[in-house]
Design a protein around this nucleic acid. Structure first.
Lengths: 332, 332
DNA sequence: TTGAAAGCGCTACCAC
DNA sequence: GTGGTAGCGCTTTCAA
């Protein structure tokens, strides 16, 4: 049996409603009384029963995150950042690695205040209790819940323009040309559009396809690329994990960044700065994305703001010294 | 307002205690009544309120898992397997990626039935409510909670003996000789003890140190090793992630497994079978480990069994064809 | 400033 | 078989 407010009331010789108020730091309780009650609570090793609290207040102060099966660094970084934001707002976060539909159902039974559906691999077939605030990210857009997304196309587009402004004409894109992954398709599109706009040809030399999004895929692609006689002066690549591999290959070829080659990577996460060569990167900064997601969900929960059904966040370039102009003067 | 059993009672014209019984499939309700009530519940879109249920039954049917900051494949596989076991036992699992102490505190407030502390990076300073069943894994052994561990030393020990039985005399170990990671230290010790026991010398040629436990660490170490003139006939390595890199290197050197070199890896997870070359591996099969952990926690919760403070699980070798005798005849 | 009492949604017990 | 009711631990009126 754990200790309840009644126990505290008994010991401190007050009514249990007074204890409740004291515990909630209500101004209605005399400081002396409050102090004594708090002391007794501590002595007794009292742990508030959230279950009971939630039952009456109809607030769990908890959000659920339907967790994908993720291996990608950038995505697990996002989950971590979301957790930080949640804690900062005095909420808890409950993760579930079950199937999305199962996860949401469970969250609902626990009466969480809101749910984030994150990178669902399976379609959201069910319509859940319409009162449950749900926010999605990276889910196909034909779902009834607000979605916070990221402008992938513009990210790579901006990267091309940035390199071009530095004077680069020979720019290559290393990425995974998946048929099904919308995000990868968008990135590639951004590359083509930008190159076209500034009058640079896109041929097979300028697009290097990887076999996936892992570290080794980047490594293998970069190795193939770097063996060529006619090297690009600048490289754009599609993810953090790819970057790791690409840098290894660049190292093995004894190339200096940015003296021999400029590199800009997708995924604006802090880990970019901790690579063997810190990389300039483009994308929505992960902390901003996390903050936006959590604040949006909180708005949904508190009904303080109505949300647009789709919100696409715009990318930023974060300079970390891996790009210069092609004549080898550092530009960032 | 979500619908409650009272709403159901009103609509179906019975008392709400009958509804409660029907919903819990009690034999005390006439099948007809039950059927009708269930139908009404469905029509109304009723979702049981676990919060209320938990309050009275003092059971949340949920266990909490204090989630480490993991990057290692084998560990996230373990979490997934644990989740499967939990679901199989009609429980829910709540994950927290917060600091362990914070996580347990939160779980306690939510009155979870039990907690698994998994690979805690920070020491467990606090003693939590002594009534909360807690099970740990991979945590330093000077904690007051039962711990389920894995015999790392014996794993590698058995691997050496296995290779030796096949006739190998030139056996190398590729692993991360961390000063602080007890598990890595134990693996290395297992190698030394076994080699010593069968009268083989351990020199710098037989131990190849990696710089970490990532994929690339394995790749880099293997490349260095394979350049030697005097190749070992068999290789033992310390983790799944290392294996991935090692196989890439082996491939690049155009070596055949097991014809040119036998490989056995630590980490007994199914992914081993899905590598470019399926690898024979040693360790406690991850599903067995997960099952043991969940069952143990459930025992703790239901007090059906008392647990020893430390339980160390013994490894198995799972043969997947990557080992032969040195004269190139497949052995497994 | 404190206390009494209602009630959150549900289970479990006891009557009928 | 079914209904009435107490009570889980807490917050929140309302009275004193």
């Amino acid at each position: 049996m754990s200790v309840t407010i009644k126990d505290i009331a008994q010991v401190s010789g007050v009514s249990y409603s007074t204890v409740s108020k004291a515990l909630n730091d209500s101004p209605l309780v005399k400081p002396d009384t409050k102090k004594k009650i708090l002391q007794v609570a501590k002595d007794l090793g009292y742990t508030p029963n959230f279950v009971a609290k939630n039952l009456v207040s109809k607030k769990s102060n908890t959000i659920g995150l339907a967790w994908p099966t993720i291996e990608q660094t950038a995505l697990s970084t996002l989950v971590t950042e979301i957790n930080k934001q949640v804690v900062k707002n005095n909420y808890f976060m409950m993760l579930s690695i079950n199937d999305t539909n199962h996860a949401v159902e469970m969250f609902q039974k626990f009466r969480v205040d809101g749910v984030i559906i994150f990178e669902a691999e399976t379609p959201l077939v069910k319509t859940f209790d319409s009162n449950l605030p749900i926010l999605t990210h990276g889910v196909s857009s034909n779902n009834p819940y607000p979605i916070i997304d990221v402008n992938h196309r513009k990210s790579i587009y901006e990267a091309v323009l940035y390199l071009n402004r530095l004077g680069h004409k020979k720019i290559s894109y290393v990425g995974f040309p998946s048929q099904t992954d919308k995000r990868q398709i968008e990135k590639l599109k951004g590359f083509r559009v930008a190159m076209n706009e500034i009058g640079l040809k896109v041929d097979e030399d300028s697009i290097i396809s990887t076999d996936g999004l892992t570290w080794y895929d980047g490594y293998a692609a970069a190795k193939k690329l770097l063996q060529r006689s006619n090297l690009p002066t600048a490289l754009i690549n599609g993810s953090y994990d790819l970057s790791v591999g690409i840098l290894r290959a660049v190292n093995e070829f004894n190339l200096k960044v940015p003296e021999d080659i400029s590199i800009i990577s997708y995924d604006n996460i802090p880990q970019m700065a901790r690579l063997e060569t810190p990389l300039t990167s483009v994308g929505v900064p992960v902390n901003q994305l996390a903050e936006k997601m959590v604040n949006s969900l909180l708005d949904l929960i508190n009904k303080t703001n109505s949300l647009p059904l789709i919100e696409v966040m715009e990318p930023e370039i974060t300079k970390r010294g891996s790009c210069s102009n092609p004549t080898y003067k550092k530009a960032d």
